[in-house]
Design a protein around this nucleic acid. Structure first.
Length: 479
RNA sequence: GGUCCCAUCGUCUAGCCUGGCCUAGGACGGUGCCCUCUCAAGGCACAAACACGGGUUCGAAUCCCGUUGGGACCA
């Protein structure tokens, strides 16, 4: 049962895509569940589209998500000799043949076939070439079986039958010496002793050709598992126009890696009614049998819910450190002195119930760290709670606070009570103006928590400013 | 166009293989109520689906055929 070897094989032609991460995750979980080996292989033979930045982005994304690999990333461009020697071998065995048709000729014939409404397949004209070869470089083409069937026994899709007469002779090695996708994949998977190929079902149609290549190369094919695609809300393949699709974007928006992992694991896979899984639980419970066959639509709101859940339950130390990072990213220059880790932790603990992302948390946290003048006051909140009517309350509070020994709840509670009775106010008539004065927003943690976190000096500073704002007449015109 | 795949609430899904326990369960989102110094969180409740048509069967979401719709690959 051991010896499971799986791989994730991205093309480095862009950032690490959410769909790619799901494939990577399922491979990783399968490997970890079976105590197998997870291999990362960079499929960079398309040199015009592959970039180093993209490779870096992929590796960084994998690390952030905790999808660690067991064998150093392989790169196909380091392995060209291997593809060459295998194709030569097939050539010598008569399983492949040189093809002298140029890409232009092939394109021309394809167009003609399309025009006559015929299948745009290779016509096999170089298969039994008798005339001496033209004086130009040859591609190497596979002599595919023309009768019978090739059957894929897929772990997800089941028994899938392909008629061999539908499959034409595919190119193994181009005239420039670079392997084609299908050939390189098979050579690598054989060489790396891959036991299970877990990939998107957009590759299901490639699979019969690949199985034929395994047979030609004298190897048993691995088990295949084709995962359904992830679609956008319009049911087309998830892409940039549907919004953020790179892991890096989610990181920047303040998502936790475990939320992304949990969300993606539940997309196409399930374990009864369970929604929340720790990393260890996923490893323990993951298997291919419950993987569904149908495509799923990416639902950002559920991901957001999971993110909120993981923020709520995160370790305070970690949350404080993360809050520091996002605060710095957001307000860097205005922060002044270095952030106090202890205070970050306390603020994070107070905000974790209501921040759905770390960016939201950083925004809500800024009033505890920045100078009062730098805090933007929500316009609507200001009109409602910082005006001529509420100004006396704010002034009373300013007076009271400056005389108070501390702003702890047990000190403040009786004082607030007296004010409420004396002025005939309800708690929210006191708390709301104060809240807006302190945080610039009409929502925040409990008012005693805010005061406690902010401290006397900063609270007075915010109140000063709020009183000044409350004196200003409402801006004319638009409202 | 050809080939292949897929089809349960708006969305993710359980159930389907091994028909009856399904007046179809859970979750996100939505709505309402409770809690409450605000917003959240939390608690409770409600609305919401077996694509359609034929079979098979005493009985079908579950098995079979077809239709429709969607997707992927060939590009």
């Amino acid at each position: 049962m051991g010896n499971v070897r799986v791989r994730f094989a991205p093309s480095p032609t862009g950032y690490l895509h959410i769909g790619g991460v799901r494939t990577a995750l399922f491979n990783w979980l399968y490997a970890r569940h079976h105590q197998g080996t997870f291999i990362l292989r960079i499929e960079d033979t398309d040199r015009s589209r592959s970039t180093e930045e993209s490779i870096t982005a992929i590796l960084e994304g994998m690390k952030w998500l905790g999808l660690d690999w067991d064998e150093a990333p392989y790169r196909q461009t380091d392995r060209l000799e291997l593809y060459r020697s295998h194709s030569q071998r097939l050539l010598q065995q008569g399983i492949a043949y040189p093809c002298y048709c140029t890409p232009e000729e092939l394109e021309q014939r394809r167009k003609e076939a399309l025009a006559k409404a015929l299948l745009p397949r290779y016509d096999g004209r170089c298969r039994e070439l008798k005339t001496p070869p033209p004086d130009r470089p040859a591609a190497i083409r596979f002599k595919a079986p023309q009768v019978g069937q090739t059957i894929v026994e897929d772990l997800v899709k089941g028994h899938v039958v392909f008629e061999n007469n539908q499959l034409d002779d595919l190119i193994l090695l181009r005239a420039d010496g670079l392997p084609t996708y299908n050939f390189a994949v098979v050579v690598d998977d054989i060489d790396m002793k891959i036991t299970h190929v877990i990939r998107g079902d957009d590759h299901l149609n490639n699979t019969p050709r690949q199985i034929q290549l395994y047979q030609a190369l004298g190897s048993d094919p691995p088990r295949f598992a084709h995962l359904p695609m992830i679609l956008g809300p319009d049911k087309s393949r998830l892409s940039k126009r549907h919004g953020a699709t790179s892991v890096e974007a989610y990181r920047q928006m303040g998502y936790l890696p475990e939320a992304v992992v949990n969300y993606l694991a539940r997309l196409g896979w399930s374990h009864g009614d369970q929604e929340v899984f720790s990393r260890l639980e996923l490893i323990e419970k993951f298997s291919l049998e419950p993987v569904g066959k149908s495509a799923s639509i990416f639902n950002p709101e559920k991901l957001l819910w999971l993110n909120a859940h993981y923020i709520k339950t995160a370790e305070p130390e970690r949350l404080g450190a993360l809050l520091g990072e996002y605060l710095t990213a957001l307000k860097g220059e205005s922060l002044g002195q270095p952030l106090n880790p202890l205070k970050l932790r306390e603020v994070a603990a107070a905000l974790k119930e209501r921040a759905k992302t770390l960016v939201e948390m950083a925004e809500m946290a800024s009033c505890y760290f920045l100078r009062a003048e730098l805090i933007e006051i929500d316009q609507e909140a200001k009109e409602k709670f910082l005006n001529q009517k509420t100004r006396p309350i704010l002034q009373t509070l300013h007076e009271v606070f400056s005389k108070a020994s501390s702003l702890d709840q047990n000190v403040l509670e009786p004082i607030f009570k007296d004010i409420l009775i004396r002025d005939g106010l309800k708690m929210n008539q006191l708390a709301q103006p104060l809240r807006v004065a302190l945080t610039g927003k009409s929502y925040s943690p409990g008012i005693y928590d805010v005061l406690n976190l902010m401290g006397k000096q900063k609270a007075l500073e915010h109140l000063d400013r709020a009183i000044r704002e409350a004196q200003k007449p409402a801006p004319p015109g638009d409202a």
